[in-house]
Amino acid sequence: MDLALLSALNVERAARRACVLVTDLGGGGQWLVREDELVREPWASRPLSAALNEALRSGKSGTIESEGRALFLNVQAPPVKLVVTGAVHISQALVSMARELALDMTVIDPRSAFASPERFPSVRLIAEWPDEALKRVPLDRYTAFVALTHDPKIDDPALEAALRSACFYVGALGSRKTHAKRVERLMQAGFLSEEIARIRAPIGLNIGAVSPAEIALSIIGEIVATLRADRLAGRDRAAS
């Protein structure tokens, strides 16, 4: 691969733009196709664009045959982002797990006593209200959003933004009772019950978690299970 091509690929990844690296396995070259190029000419009318669109939609890389050539389509989806409201104890435990899983984590909390660099030395920390903070950290379909403050003043505006976004995961900490009140508030804010049903609450896989680290683990487990839902469904089908 040409170093300039690898460099261009890394620029797309850093900018969180999905693209496909196409390699002619017979030695006929290599090129990069950005998602937004597929809707414009010359790509829009090329036979290959259907396969490229499908690869981007499914997020799956693979080899295809096109006009007698074997082409490897390597889908480059942006790194998964984890956005959390609440610079709380559970969030501290999430930091090291997110790092291990290569999740790009941001913590938002307007309470500067919580959102201090001493408590969160190695993560992107925004000590502002979610309305302001989310302008700099847009929620896209490669983002998991988690609300952990227990404070509706902070969590609700962020949850509303998450429900209006294409986030693949939305979770909120709180008991069933707390969540029932949250659902009422969101209904009053104009959300439909099927929209609100996207929120995972009580948050996390049920592993009987007690400590902040255990709760963080259950949240991370649920995020991974959502991210890999296709594979999970396939395995369940194979087992039944």
Binding site: L3, L6, N10, R13, K60, S61, Q76, A77, V80
Partner: peptide
């Protein structure tokens, strides 16, 4: 499949820019 191999491609570029001979296996 969403890739979490992000740092590998970044490292491939860094190594190549350092003038090291580099290969990428996929």
């Amino acid at each position: 499949m969403i890739s979490t191999d992000s740092d590998i491609l970044g490292m491939a570029e860094t190594w190549a820019r350092e003038g090291r001979g580099v290969a990428l296996a996929t």
